[in-house]
C-alpha cells in the first residue's frame, strides 16, 4: 500500500495563477485601465472637471478647443470637457442599471428552464422567438413610448427586453453542463434540485453570461445614448453623451467638437468593456 501513497503525492508543477496570465495580455490591461479611469470619472466627476458643467457663459459660446477649454464650449458657453466628464456618471450608471436586472432575471429564468425543460421551456422558446424577431432598439423605443421618456423608464424598458438574451444564453449553457456526470452525480447523491441548479450548474454555466454582460454594458451605453439623442432617455440639461451629441448636431459644421468629444467617450468606454470582457473570458474559464 505504500506504493499507492507514493504515487498520490505527485509532484505538482508550479502554475502561474490565472491573474498573472491575464495581466500579460495587453488587451485585458488596456480594457481594465479604460474602465478603471471611467469608473473614477463617474464616481467623482467634480474632482476632474475643470468647470461646473451647467455654468453658462454667454461671453464664450461655441469656442473651439483651447487651453482654457480643451474640448471647446457649447452654444451656451458651457465647458464641453466638464460636460463630457459629468456625463460619465449618467452613462456608467446606465451601463450597470440597464444590465444587472436583465442579467439577474435572465440567469435565474434560463437556469430553471434549462434544468426542468418541459412545458415551461416550450413557452420560454416562444417568448424568445417573439422578442428576438423585433430589433432590440425598436422594441425598447416601443416600451419607452408606452411608459414615457426618462432614465428610469428607459432602464425598465431595456430590462424587459434584455433579460431574454441572458436567459437564452444561460439555458443553452445549463443544458450543455447537464451533459456532465457531476450533474448526474448530484442527483445520485440525493441533492435537492435547488442545490444542483444554483450550487453546481450555475457557477459552471455563468462564464459566457459574464462575458456577454461586459459587451452588453457597452451596448447599454450605446442604446442609452441613442435614446438620449432621440429625446427618450436622459433629458437636457442633464449632461449625457447622447444628449450632448444631439445638442451639437445643429452646429456640426461650425462647432464639430460638441458632437465629436462625447462620441469619442462612447467609443472608448465601449472598447474598454469589450476588451475587459475578452480578458475575463480567459480568466474565468475553468481548467480542464
Amino acid at each position: 500500500m505504500t506504493d499507492i501513497t507514493a504515487l498520490s503525492a505527485e509532484a505538482t508543477i508550479p502554475q502561474k495563477t490565472r491573474l498573472q496570465l491575464a495581466l500579460r495580455k495587453p488587451g485585458f490591461l488596456i480594457g481594465a485601465f479604460i474602465i478603471g479611469v471611467s469608473a473614477m470619472l463617474a464616481l467623482m466627476p467634480g474632482v476632474f472637471a475643470p468647470y461646473d458643467p451647467n455654468l453658462i457663459d454667454y461671453v464664450a459660446v461655441k469656442q473651439p478647443p483651447s487651453w482654457a477649454h480643451p474640448f471647446g464650449t457649447d452654444m451656451l458657453g458651457r465647458d464641453s470637457l466638464s460636460r463630457v466628464i459629468f456625463a460619465y456618471k449618467v452613462n456608467m450608471q446606465m451601463a450597470i442599471l440597464a444590465t444587472v436586472f436583465a442579467m439577474t432575471i435572465g440567469v435565474i429564468v434560463g437556469a430553471l428552464v434549462g434544468y426542468y425543460r418541459g412545458f415551461a421551456d416550450m413557452i420560454f422558446g416562444r417568448v424568445v422567438d417573439a422578442v428576438i424577431t423585433f430589433p432590440f432598439l425598436v422594441l425598447v423605443i416601443a416600451v419607452v413610448a408606452v411608459l414615457g421618456p426618462g432614465l428610469i423608464n428607459m432602464y425598465i424598458a431595456i430590462t424587459l427586453v434584455g433579460w431574454v438574451y441572458y436567459a437564452r444564453l444561460m439555458r443553452a449553457e445549463v443544458i450543455a453542463q447537464m451533459g456532465n456526470d457531476y450533474a448526474s452525480a448530484g442527483v445520485v447523491m440525493g441533492y435537492s434540485d435547488r442545490r444542483i441548479i444554483f450550487r453546481h450548474l450555475l457557477p459552471n454555466a455563468i462564464t459566457p453570461v459574464i462575458v456577454y454582460w461586459m459587451t452588453d454594458m457597452a451596448l447599454a451605453i450605446l442604446l442609452g445614448s441613442s435614446l438620449g439623442y432621440l429625446g427618450l432617455g436622459a433629458q437636457p440639461p442633464q449632461a449625457e453623451w447622447g444628449v450632448l451629441i444631439a445638442e451639437g448636431r445643429n452646429f456640426i459644421t461650425t462647432a464639430w467638437w460638441l458632437s465629436l468629444m462625447p462620441g469619442i467617450a462612447i467609443v472608448l468606454t465601449g472598447l474598454g468593456f469589450s476588451l475587459l470582457g475578452d480578458g475575463l473570458a480567459d480568466l474565468l474559464r475553468p481548467r480542464g
Binding site: 456532465n180 456526470d181 448526474s184 452525480a185 445520485v188 447523491m189 440525493g190 457557477p203 481548467r287
Partner: peptide
C-alpha cells in the same frame, strides 16, 4: 440515494470543476 451510490465512468466530468 444515500444508501445506493454510483461512481461514474469519466473522472473528468463527474466532479464539479469549481
Amino acid at each position: 440515494n444515500r444508501r445506493v451510490q454510483m461512481m461514474f465512468q469519466d473522472p473528468y466530468s463527474s466532479l464539479n470543476p469549481r
